[in-house]
Write a protein that binds this DNA or RNA. Structure first.
Lengths: 212, 212, 212, 212
DNA sequence: GATGAATGAGAATTCATTCAT
DNA sequence: AATGAATGAATTCTCATTCAT
């Protein structure tokens, strides 16, 4: 097989789908992300999603069986990348640098994928009706792992004493805040300021974590 | 008039209302807070609010002209106390202590008034359709004031250098997180842990703010 | 309490219902009977039922929560009287006369309540999705009882030998036929002929049952 | 042309059709019979028919122009054989034996072709919207013929006096009952019992028809 | 004040049928 | 012949709001 063919094959997200199916499904998910993240599950209407995707409503339901199916596909896709920055944290790296890099990556995600962040925030705010299993399963497992790493660093005195899980909450809360509470941030600052946010968070966590 | 009656009269929020009217309005707002904070504006139904308040739906609409009116009353009431902790920050006090006290008060509010926090979070997440003016007006003004105070403290070297506005975002994000993302927190920790959160945030902001 | 008041109370079918509720519910059931018996469950539309009952569609759903609820109420009401003729069969009576009277009563029901008969026929034809329990429970129990009576009569030589359960099927099939297959009967005969049917069935079962 | 080819050609129901066309049409009708007899016209969906026939929906509509066309073809095919047992009744034969043989054949058809029976029952129950002409035309004509034969037998005293048309209804009602009301029969008996039905009907009609 | 009754404007979903290839 | 794609016309059901008493 040529490299090109291999690449083509590799980018196929689902087997057995034609090009047009992939395109339309992608368009629907893109539109759905916009609408669901703005309006929430209940507030979103298939009419709006269809309009946004440039499809008729029944045609939309030709690709996804229900409104809920679109929403769940969005959550699934989101989760697939949502936890990546955390997974990239290197237990062998320099602790403070690793954690600051994680903060930076998370903030970048808030800047670059604010809709995903809001979709997630909304789901959690509603009590995570579609994601409870993931939270108590996959997420908790991953957090346990990372917490162990951080606890190790603390024990070795390589970072200042800290509650590892609450530290993660601090990182999540502050970085996601810039996406989820964007209107408030902009109202207060008179505009966005990711630069300032970046510097501030770097300072904050550096002081928090630098030992001694 | 006795003092008691005067006091009673004084606490009347709206003029021209009988006691029973106030009670019913309060019951509706109480029910509305529960329902709206759980389901969001679109997800909430007057049926549920009415049921929760123990009234018939038409009777509910006798006290409030519309669903939106209930929602807006809730936002208004919430705002009235929401910014209180910030207002209580004393420019004459000891800077680090003042700010840590503010953090503590905010965290307490998350613990004691999670419904209010979620109602607010939901409104902001939706783009603050009912609150934009408040954000750019009252809130921004108050923040400007407090930021000036903090900037003064920084200039005097009484707290470590910090971006005052982003500092406020940090405080809000982390404290509200424990109310808004409660399901996630509980899923990860296996239960609530306000004690731990309190200690963690105290440590965090102490290291952040303590000068030199 | 006066007798009149007692009578009034007695005729209340459901407690806690106002007069208008009873009237509207009755009108809906009446309309539903017509529509469902003509078109079947799937073929019936709430639009038609609402029109027939002189109500708006949402108003219809104010009285019954769903299409299915109307249908099930109809089946329940129908069953309540459907088996009455069979229950009236007197084990102490003269066997042939009793059975012929039952045949006559069943035929009268077909003539007087053809919609109920068709509603039932349609439900059974579909595999009794809403009534299976009743068939294997209440109906089977009642049939067992009556079959025992008939078997006793056979054993005593008071009627000619006969399979009691298949005899009941014969009665049901032939009497209900005049309601369920009415169009066919009328097409063949050029009109209805309950008189003739009555005489025919009387003859038929008399010859079948008269001993010796 | 070989005899075989001629035979093959002879059995072609429609001219101008290739073998594959006939096969597909047959598969569709077979699937349609299953689906329509189970769900009725309105309850049946082309999706189910297509799935059952192993075709795509558009391909199905390549062979039949519409849902109704399939349904009508089914009714037509069914009718072609439905009345055969009646036509086979031999006016020259021994009257009682002929009629009992007819009863037996009809019962066999109920056992062997219950889907056809239910399809027919459903159509009649709905008021025969697709078959009214057949009922008042072909069917009535055939019944008139047979009734004349039976009336002749009665006049000759070769069978007991009976209303010939109601006698036919009796036969149809009782035999078809075992197909159309199968669920009920099985619920009451705890299973099918064509043996018993056969003996019962033989007894019944023998007593009914045997003269003097 | 209170409530039973009613409704118009959606909203999600289904389904026969058509289109394009 | 065959099928993936598309759609218009229902159809059930929801819900904020109004009416009438």
């Amino acid at each position: 097989m040529t490299e090109k063919a291999a690449a083509k094959r590799a980018e196929t997200p689902k087997r057995g789908q034609t090009r047009i199916q992939r395109q339309k499904r992608a368009a629907i998910l893109e539109a759905g992300l916009t609408v669901f993240s703005e309006a929430g599950f209940r507030g979103a209407t298939l009419d709006r999603v269809a309009a946004e995707a440039g499809l008729s409503k029944p045609n939309l339901l030709y690709y996804f069986p229900s409104k809920e199916a679109i929403y769940e596909a969005l959550l699934r896709d989101m989760l697939a990348t949502w936890l990546d920055p955390l997974r990239e944290l290197n237990p062998e790296g320099e602790p403070v640098a690793e954690l600051l890099a994680y903060v930076a990556r998370k903030l970048e995600m808030s800047r670059d994928f604010p809709r995903e962040s809001r979709l997630f925030a909304n789901e959690i705010l509603r009590g995570a009706p579609h994601m409870h299993d993931v939270l108590t399963g996959e997420l908790r497992g991953l957090v346990d792992e990372i917490a162990a790493v951080i606890d190790g660093w603390v024990a070795q005195g390589r970072i200042a004493p800290v509650d590892s899980r609450h530290l993660l909450f601090s990182i999540w809360a502050q970085t996601q805040h810039y996406a989820d509470f964007d209107v408030q941030v902009q109202a207060v600052l008179g505009g966005a300021d990711y630069e300032g946010a970046s510097r501030h968070l770097d300072t904050m966590f550096r002081r928090m974590l630098t030992p001694g």
